[in-house]
Structure formats: structure tokens, C-alpha cells
Design a binder for these strands. Structure first.
Lengths: 323, 323
DNA sequence: CTGTTAGCGCCTTCAC
DNA sequence: GTGAAGGCGCTAACAG
């Protein structure tokens, strides 16, 4: 494997000149540059990135920690983050933490070991004190004071979703949501639900449960066992909405005639969009872009806003009746 | 940031001893070891992984290239590969190639730049000559001579699936499959379909189409427009099976009464398993384990078998009639 | 078992 | 604009 020394020797110049020519830092005469590039091509020279990383003390790698990449929302986020990072010369390391809680903590070590330049964190777990100087941004979660995060206008859109159910004639409106151990903006979703129900003077039908991805059907069986009269349901995710739909079908409840559903996330389109779910659609590409930009700014040690809100919007679908 | 020199000085030993004690290579007296560990803790010493990578010329990172991580099969594969690699001290870099064909080629460069130690390739694209010495393994695809790959017993199980449809009373059996530009073991699926149909002396109803993930519904609309009489359908993926189910429902065709479906992959369980699809279930965790082991063996420059087959099995579900 | 030393490949001064 | 030299932090080879 040819090194820059070999190139320099072959081109009859010093290593410094070769380095400047090849990396583009500093100026080199056209003549020398041509000779060097010629020699480099000749020798099949490929700059050793490991040496560069070492020298620069940077890997141009960022890690994203998700509960599991096998999930519509998380996989969409991973896809978008990867594309945003790739565009900026960074690579993305994926870490699935759902099956191994110790992993998250061990991955935080990765920053200190310089194996990644920063971390995008989408976690369920509680962490002890994390050094707020570390380049970490999170999505929807409050990891701790000093860590910037990106989120949607959860509260506002959740209110709108519940109001929409009432406006379309639902009387017995319920809500099903996931709970997280860590303080999360997603909690706004059921807060908004409760408030709107109270404002309407109606009975609250609420299930907030800490479940693992994949257990959505059980959660909805539990919900419907408790509140079978539900004719309007707002769920904290599309997976829950889908589970609600299938549970309803199984129970012989017609959607949307006898049950209307609005989900959250709006990421199922890429999968099998049937039925087309009404949902609060988050702008995953925009959220990913924000998260990446914030993180790279943090890596450059710039100040960034603590909270960035990306607007979501209500997307109609076949699980709502005509107005 | 403390270096190993600082630790050595603080512990009153030489750097070599400190290095051996901290990395565990070579033997050190208990006494010295204790002092060194003490000093390291005291100084908050964290070994600089970048320096290690540089020295060892290895990153302990592997890349996986998939069309998109937003897909049940690929995300399952990414999850399993990540877990297998993590267990062995490796990290996984994810690259989505569907939206940028040049990416794959540029990622192959990553190996030469030493930014990753090896690559797991699940591609649709054709590549020129790739140096067969590079540590690359692929899944289902023939990247080129000399590259080992992992696959299921596609042919055998596809035959079984089609036979099953006939055995359960289907008369007009069709098949819908994705096509890839590159030679792929998945092609066995429709070869098997054709053969079994021919052996039964029946008419072939076959659609093999090169589509992007997300376009499954259109593909099935096209299929049913052409072969509306179908009462048994074997599809090359669960996404296609799901699209078939929904297309049938939309057309008022009852499943499984008037149409039976068997899919392929068996990865929807983690998503929303409704209806429970009959499918040829691939053993994704085992395939991932094989791929990782093969790749790490290649990285160690060991000889590995060119082809590794992991058995799949037929999983019954609600899209088949009782026997 | 231990301390010293010589690089790994690149970049960045620093004189020229 | 250029070449020589030093050093990033660590490991491995060597001599003690």
C-alpha cells in the first residue's frame, strides 16, 4: 500500500508538498500538483483515513441509538439521519438498545473513546449524570439539562387530533399511549388528550402503558376490554393505531363507521398503507436534518438552541368519517 | 486528556508496562498492575481509540449496505447484524443505497480507506469488477466470483409453498416477485413457482417486476388486473403478500376463502401481524450470524465457503384455508 | 517481568 | 512555494 512518502518520492518532491497538494490545504504550484497527482494515480495511492483520523482526532462518524431499528418511526429516522450525514461526509453507526440496556451507557463511552464524534439519542432509559459538554442531541426525549433536542409540536397537534374526533361526531373518545421511563415530549400527547376531553366535559378513557415494540396488539386488547364503547380513538403512534384497527376488525367493529382512529407519526406510507390511516404526521426528514445540524454544530463547539420544534400536521385518511 | 504516558509516570512505571497492563496483552506483575489501574482511574484515563485504530490499522467497524433500512426484511437484518457484531466488539455503519446509486461504489472505497474493516452487501445494483480480496460478504446476491454469500433454501421452500397452495385446493395459482439487476438467489423463488405450475400442467400466472420498495400496491394492482381469476398466490416477499391481501380486500375478494396467499421472509411479526400471513419464514438471526462470522473470518484472511445456506420453513397463517 | 525506543501515516509548523 | 523535521498516542520489539 503506497503512502504519501512514496508519492512524494515518485513525484520528486517533499512529503509536505505532496500532502498539501493531495489534501488541498495550502498552495502548491500547478506544475508540482500535476506531477504529484500523476504519481498518486500511478501508485494507486489512497490516503490512509486512519492516520487522518488519528491526526485530526475525529472519525467523521456519528452514532444513533434507537430502541430498535425494526420500527417504522425509528427506521425512518435512521434513514433520514444517514442521508443527511452522508451528504456532509459523515457516516452513521446504528445501535439498538432495546434488548440490552447496558448498551446505551457503554455507547456514551464511545464518545470519550473518540470512536464517534457525536451521538443522536432516542432512548427510553434513564441515565445518570452525563457530561453536558458531550456532543449529544436527542429526539423527543429530555436526556438532561444542557442537551439540545428536536421534537414536534406534540401538544398542539394532539389537541387538534382529539378535537377532530369530536368534530366528526365521536362521543366516546379514548386515548392509548406508550409511556417512557425518561421524560419525553411524547407525554404531551396524552396530556393534550386529557385536557380536551375535560374541556368537553366527557369521560376520560385513557391507557398509558410502558410496553415493548411488538406488544401493541395486547395493549389494544386491554384497552378495548376496558372501554368497548369507544367510537373515537387517538393513539400515540401509528403502530398503536394499526393495532387498534385490527383489534376493532377482529371484534366486528367497523372503521370508520363505528370507530374513528387517528394515529401519530405518519411514517407508515413507506410500508403498507392500508387502510390509509388518519394520523398526526411528523416531518421526519426535517427532524433528522435538524438533529444532524444541531449535532454537527455541537461537535464544532457552537452554541445551539436547547429545544427545536418541527411542525407536524394532521393527515386525513380512511379511518375518519366524512365531515 | 490524560495519555498513557501520564498514567505511566503517575504509577512510576514505563509506558510499555502501562500499555500491557491496560490492554491486557502481555503479563504484568499484580503489584504494578494495581498501581497502574489506580493511576488510570485517578487521572480519568481513557485509551484513545483513534490511536489504537491507527496503530492496528483497523477500526472495528463493519458497514452494511441495504437499499433502505425502512423495510421489514432489511431492518431485521440490520438489527441482527448489529447485535451479532456488537457482541464481538464491532460496530455497524448503515448505508442506504436506494436513493443514491453512486453510494455503493463510494462505500467500497471505504474499505480501501480503512474506514471500515469489511462490508455486508445487500444490493440491487450491478458492480464492475471488485477486488475479490476485499472483505465483503453478501446476502442472497451474487456480487461476483469469490465473494461468499448467505442465503436461504429458496428453491426448495418455494416449491413447497406452491405445492401447499395446490394441496389446499387452489386451482389458479399465480406468482408475484421482485426482480433485481444483479444475479440473486431470490430468483430461485419464481423459478420454483414456474416449475411446479408446469408439473401440475396448469397455466402460469407470473409477474416479475423491478420495483422500488413502497410500490408494492401498484404491482399487485397490475397483477390482479391481468389475472383476476387467481385463487392462490405465492409472493416473493411479505410486503407483496400484504399488498396482495389489501388489494384483494379492496376488490371484495375474501381471504382465504376465495384467495389464499403465501408470502416470503417471515419478518412481519415484529410489525403488525394482521392478518397473520402464511409465509416462507427465513431465519434472519441465523443468516445475520452467518454473515457476520463469514465476514470476520474474511477479515482475518481465513478461507470461507462460497455459499452458506440457512434453512427457511413454511409458516402457516390466516391466509391459508384449513387442509 | 520491565523500561526504552522506534515507528504507524499524516499534517503542520518552521526555516529556507 | 518548498523540504525537512517533529509529533499525535499507542503498541510491539528489543534488550535488560
Amino acid at each position: 500500500m503506497a503512502t504519501i512518502k512514496d508519492v512524494a518520492r515518485a513525484a520528486g518532491v517533499g512529503v509536505g508538498t505532496a500532502s498539501r497538494a493531495l489534501s488541498g490545504n495550502g498552495s502548491v504550484s500547478e506544475e508540482a500538483k500535476a506531477k504529484i497527482e500523476e504519481a498518486a494515480k500511478e501508485l494507486g495511492f489512497v490516503p490512509n483515513q486512519l492516520a487522518r483520523n488519528f491526526k485530526k482526532q475525529s472519525t467523521a462518524c456519528v452514532a444513533i441509538i434507537v430502541p430498535t431499528v425494526c420500527h417504522p418511526f425509528f427506521s425512518a429516522m435512521v434513514l433520514c439521519c444517514e442521508e443527511e450525514l452522508y451528504r456532509r461526509g459523515y457516516r452513521l453507526i446504528v445501535v439498538n438498545s432495546q434488548n440490552d440496556q447496558t448498551k446505551e451507557t457503554r455507547m456514551l463511552e464511545m464518545i470519550r473513546q473518540q470512536r464517534v464524534d457525536g451521538i443522536i439519542l432516542i432512548t427510553h432509559y434513564e441515565h445518570g449524570e452525563i457530561d453536558p459538554a458531550l456532543p449529544i442531541v436527542s429526539i423527543d426525549r429530555h436526556v438532561g439539562a444542557g442537551f439540545p433536542y428536536v421534537t414536534s409540536n406534540n401538544y398542539e397537534m394532539s389537541r387538534k387530533a382529539v378535537e377532530e374526533l369530536y368534530a366528526r361526531g365521536a362521543k366516546n373518545v379514548g386515548g392509548v399511549f406508550g409511556a417512557t421511563a425518561v421524560e419525553s415530549e411524547t407525554g404531551q400527547r396524552f396530556c393534550a388528550y386529557s385536557e380536551v376531553v375535560r374541556e368537553h366535559g366527557e369521560k376520560e378513557r385513557l391507557l398509558v402503558k410502558n410496553f415493548r415494540h411488538g406488544e401493541e396488539m395486547q395493549v389494544l386488547e386491554e384497552y378495548f376490554a376496558r372501554y368497548p364503547e369507544t367510537d373515537g380513538l387517538f393513539t400515540g403512534s401509528d403502530m398503536l393505531a394499526s393495532a387498534a384497527y385490527h383489534t376493532a376488525v377482529r371484534r366486528g367493529v367497523r372503521v370508520p363507521d363505528r370507530l374513528q382512529i387517528i394515529g401519530f407519526d405518519g411514517v407508515l406510507d413507506a410500508w403498507e398503507p392500508y387502510p390509509k390511516f388518519a394520523t398526526v404526521r411528523q416531518d421526519v426528514p426535517a427532524m433528522a436534518k435538524c438533529a444532524v445540524e444541531l449535532l454537527l454544530a455541537r461537535i464544532r463547539r457552537e452554541e445551539v438552541p436547547a429545544r427545536t420544534e418541527v411542525p407536524a400536521f394532521l393527515q386525513e385518511g380512511d379511518t375518519l368519517r366524512r365531515r
